[in-house]
Design a protein around this nucleic acid. Structure first.
Lengths: 250, 250
DNA sequence: GAAATAGTGTCTATCAGACAATATATC
DNA sequence: GATATATTGTCTGATAGACACTATTTC
């Protein structure tokens, strides 16, 4: 049997029914706090629960495209602002009982967005909102989404170390102080301003100067800061390593 | 409608048919060279081509369990030796046209195995073999498996930097020289023996001494070496960083 | 004995982090 | 003026890598 004949007689229904969804852990920084995009589910199962934006991958749709589409639906984003959002694959979750309806494998994605307008509910959600990550402990997320979020936060914290993706939380032009704010927010602790400044400028391709400065100093005083844009590096060498905490290692 | 009623009337067939496979990029070191486990496909499509071991995820089977099962089928491994193989999820590949039969999403896994006996063909393969990674350029892999392998090799090289997984390529007890051999093989360049030795011993939890030494010196001379086993660290702090190559960064 | 390897010692350039100093903004 | 922030300077301890040396083993 050649490949032509084989395909003509092939029956996809012979294989077990599985559905594939793309879910998104979308992060942004608002008011100096890390926020996560959540929707309140309008349908069963878990109706009324908060969950990650996501949905079934359509026929002929790439996995990453499905994630971007879901993100666009819940944020109202489109065109250039949407292109500025960084989306990467996080991991897939396929425990047999993770969804009571049927076998559903979720290909989770991780997104870094600059500060965006308030979220707008999409088609299958009552409500969509940017929720402070610090408040997640109080909310019962649907499915295994709490685990997915935890994995996404881990990945995000780690990605800031060796990639320039922190810039994706900011406008196209930013100050070193704003960049430091991203690190402090995502990592959850203060960094030394002077050392951070020198370090960032010493990593080739991390940021490049625009030549301009901010119009005003900080709201509570201080000189105007120089403006930078993201450089052309895809990886940081040397990396900006977090101080090792013993408990994360063992 | 409550959740009970909802599930009773729910029709999984209403969703587009997708199949999910688990494929494995299994790496080992034989004769000082990095090898990859490949099978020669016995069925359409791509009959006769070399491909990654893998297959459909069964109902009620975890993704990682499916990967381990496929690995076991092709290597003949079982029990304790199989447990010693490290398996982790790599990424999912879901381009709509990656398989001519139907929409198939592959959840690729990455495995690190100690030197194993020759592979034995499983049920749906003519042949299974450990193939030197250096020879892959001459082989036309089925589907998008060349890309998956490339991603797996990248991940493997990077994982050696910040995890103790290099030990998974070795027997439970090993010498520092053997461990250095793993790094040199996977990274593809020589390391300084003295500095490597000191560095490994200085990373907390990377290796722990067994107190014993090898029975004999090296085949071409040299003293007996002390034996170590893997320590309890899951991450290496500080990491064993590769020297940065400019071209990998931009 | 020649050659290879294990393990240790030493030196230096570099770097992370602590700390300080100065200039420039806001209130 | 008091205070906050940007930016640069300086110092110190730690480290990566180069190099050297000794001891031990095989052929």
């Amino acid at each position: 049997m050649n490949e032509q004949d084989f395909l003509a007689t092939y029956d996809p229904r012979a294989y077990p029914a599985v559905a594939v969804t793309a879910d998104v852990v979308a992060l942004t920084i608002r008011d100096g706090a890390l926020h996560l995009l959540l929707i309140r589910r309008g349908e069963q199962p878990y109706a009324g629960h908060w969950a990650l934006p996501g949905g079934f991958v359509r026929p002929d749709e790439e996995l990453a495209a499905a994630a971007r589409r879901e993100l666009a639906e819940e944020t109202g984003l489109d065109g250039e602002p949407l292109r500025r959002v960084h989306v990467e694959q996080l991991a897939s979750y396929g425990a047999p009982d993770r969804d009571p309806r049927m076998r559903i494998v979720s290909v989770a994605h991780l997104a870094f967005a600059p500060d965006l307008p308030d979220a707008a509910a999409g088609t299958d959600a009552d409500e969509a909102a940017w929720v402070p990550v610090a408040e997640l402990a109080n909310r019962q997320l649907a499915f295994d989404h709490a685990r997915i979020v935890a994995d996404g936060l881990d990945r995000a914290r780690s990605k800031l170390e060796y990639t320039p993706l922190a810039t994706r939380f900011l406008a196209p032009e930013f100050t070193i102080g704003e960049l430091r704010g991203v690190y402090e927010t995502v990592w959850g602790h203060q960094l030394h301003a002077g050392n951070f400044h020198r370090k960032v400028l010493s990593v080739p391709g991390f940021v490049e100067s625009t030549g301009a400065s901010t119009e005003h100093g900080g709201s509570r005083g201080g000189p105007r800061a120089r403006l930078y844009r993201a450089g052309d590096a895809r990886l940081l060498h040397p990396a900006l390593l977090r101080p090792a905490r013993e408990e994360t290692v063992r």
